[in-house]
Design a protein around this nucleic acid. Structure first.
Lengths: 197, 197
DNA sequence: TTCTAATCGGAGTCGCCAGTCCGATTGTAG
DNA sequence: CTACAATCGGACTGGCGACTCCGATTAGAA
């Protein structure tokens, strides 16, 4: 931001090993933070990735930046999946498949979103770029499903988001008991279909 | 635990000021942790309560112990409320009132439960005493509501707990938009009633 | 009021962790 | 292969926060 073009990224492509390390760090960070919480130290992440802390901080100037990067990757993937589903499946099916997908992938996202908002980062601000894409993709899925009468009409994207967040927590809470998980999920699904009539 | 009876608490009642301070600390801790997260330092809690850190640590040997104490108070209150409701209202009404009560009180509980489990404390272990009471009270509310056909039959207490946890998150997520909150809550409520037929 | 044990308060200790710095290493252009 | 700039690694720093310790204070019994 200081004296470079503010628009796009690296004027010079990263050296091969640098790119490798960066990718490795993201990978490891995602895995470790997801598994053991965002409290894990940067040193630990670096060690696990087989690099020094210096390397970590060269790529991500802040622990927070690392978390952000991981979260963005997650959102990006979700947006992709949403578009894919919207394009290939029937409205209702696409919607519920997406819902299930988000919930399955979620134990992770929660952790990151929490950590960031706890650190005072406005997630909505930071993730705006991809956030918008995801938002639109979700809106498309939702309205199509509603038009097909597969989902009640009195919901918008904010409500859907909240339901997703909450459902993620439920799943997280139930842990490995997949029977209970299914029953719980059924409550939500039935609620989403209920016409309110 | 070193040389005293392991069973019950204080053989000697606390001095008046000590009792006062202890109560104050719990009060303040609950408020502050709820409002600003469990990351708030013990020193801050102590200052806010108008005592020194020494006092805080005399009453609660560990920050974690303080969190635990606060959480227990919360659970205790919930158990009370559940019993009260079961005794005075019609089954379905009692159940849904309880549900709403938990959700309203919740922004708090989440925070504590999270912090403790993040710290490696098995909440189910620690809160067993009151946890059992609460568990029973919830079971009673649930089965009565089911018998009265106000709630679908394929749910048990674990599922109910998960739904509560998740719904708390939804509410938390939506923040102050009470319209969206109501719509979201309606999804859950309809889902709970849906017979699955 | 007097005396003593219980309690208080907060300066100080200790360990942990994010983030820095620079000599050693290594990719790569020529 | 050589040279040099990009990159690496990890010892080191600074600050923060949980917890300790002990002299000062105070509740409450006699």
């Amino acid at each position: 931001m200081t004296a470079q073009q503010a628009g796009q990224d690296s004027p010079r492509p990263l050296r091969a090993d640098a790119r490798r390390n960066r990718a490795r760090l993201l990978e490891v960070a995602e895995a470790v933070f997801t598994a053991r919480g965002t409290g894990v130290s940067t040193e630990e992440i670096a060690r696990e990735a087989g690099v020094g802390v210096g390397t970590l901080f060269r790529h991500f100037p802040t622990k927070e930046a690392l978390l952000e990067a991981v979260l963005l990757r997650r959102l990006e993937r979700l947006a992709e999946a949403a578009e894919q589903l919207a394009a290939t499946k029937a409205p209702g099916d696409a919607f519920f498949t997406f819902f299930a997908l988000v919930v399955d992938q979620s134990p992770a996202k929660n952790v990151f979103a929490d950590a960031l908002s706890a650190a005072g980062v406005d997630v909505r601000q930071t993730t705006s770029e991809i956030g918008r894409t995801l938002h639109q993709a979700m809106a498309a899925l939702l309205t199509e499903a509603q038009r097909a009468n597969a989902v009640r009409a009195d919901l918008g994207v904010p409500e859907l988001t909240a339901l997703l967040v909450g459902t993620c927590r439920m799943v997280e809470h139930l842990g490995s008991d997949s029977d209970a998980r299914e029953r719980t999920f059924a409550v939500i699904a039935d609620g989403l279909r209920a016409s309110g009539s």
